[in-house]
């Protein structure tokens, strides 16, 4: 057991879903984001997704767009993501990176995989890379023993779900709604059906993200998925006064961690 397999095995043993929390690297600054990621892990995130701020994030809504802008203006450099990953792993947490493809392409796909693996990162979530175009990444992730988390969508055909899950390793990311990232009041009605369809094609764990923001929603998703993925709700708490931000990020992680265990206050 290596990479993410052991995490999902232990969650299954506890008969619960895993909690995955997202924050953009370097938001609001590099030092702040390291501290915030620490709070997420301490608050109960089983896995953190460290986002690479990108100039043209077409899958992201206003909250994450604005955070990415802030991080880039504060001087974020791609290599900073590796030290953040290292800070999480040395603190005993687990980290994957979520990135649009061009920064990886530009860095060099194999070099990126090598440096991420060296920092202790477990894999990469690729919102705009589909397996059809992923040949260099399939090779690099094999060579450096990284998981590759591709996305499936409510609009995906059976054939595409089959092909995408076959190319995936670690878990599969199911987007709960048709749309961009951002906290929503209700879990997408497409989500349970998409998870069910995905499971017909794979034994990999299936995580659900896009629009999750409360413990109650986490509990609802934990009822049908293997991982609950929360992004914008963390990002919305991460700006501004950092003492307050750390405390709010920590308490959201705790609320969601209770949610994935079916404990909703």
């Amino acid at each position: 057991m290596d990479r993410l397999d052991s995490l999902f095995a232990s969650c299954r043993a506890e008969r619960r879903a895993a909690l995955v929390g997202y924050l953009p690297a370097g938001y609001p600054t590099a030092a702040d984001s390291a501290a915030l990621l620490g709070e997420m892990v301490a608050g109960g995130c089983d896995l953190v997704e460290i986002g690479v701020p990108y100039s043209d994030p077409v899958m992201d809504g206003p909250t994450i767009q604005s955070a990415a802008d802030t991080a880039l203006r504060a001087g974020f450099r791609l290599r900073d993501v590796f030290s953040l990953v290292e800070s999480v792993t040395t603190a005993g947490g687990r980290a994957v990176v979520m990135t649009y493809w061009n920064p990886v392409h530009r860095y060099g796909v194999d070099a990126f995989a090598r440096d991420l693996a060296a920092a202790g990162g477990l894999g990469v979530i690729t919102p705009d890379l589909i397996p059809d175009e992923a040949e260099p990444w399939l090779s690099a992730s094999d060579a450096h023993d990284l998981d590759r988390i591709f996305l499936v969508s409510p609009s995906s055909t059976e054939q595409r779900i089959a092909m995408t899950t076959k190319a995936s390793r670690g878990f599969v990311y199911a987007t709960a709604v048709m749309g961009v990232t951002g906290a929503r009041d209700q879990v997408g009605s497409d989500a349970p059906g998409l998870v069910r369809r995905t499971r017909q094609h794979t034994d990999l764990p299936v995580g659900v993200g896009l629009g999750v923001r409360s413990g109650a929603q986490a509990a609802e998703i934990a009822g049908f998925a293997d991982a609950v993925i929360v992004g914008s709700a963390f990002v919305a708490r991460a700006g501004g006064d950092q003492e307050r931000a750390r405390s709010e990020v920590r308490s959201l992680a705790e609320e969601l961690a209770a949610g994935v265990r079916g404990q909703v206050s």
């Binding site: 077409v58 493809w101 609009s155 995906s156 055909t157």
Partner: peptide, 22 residues
Amino acid sequence: ERGHFGPYGGRFVPEALVAALD
């Protein structure tokens, strides 16, 4: 057939759009 002109073109898009592109 996947839209490549030499090494260029293709589809670097979210999976959500693939069905519409197909």
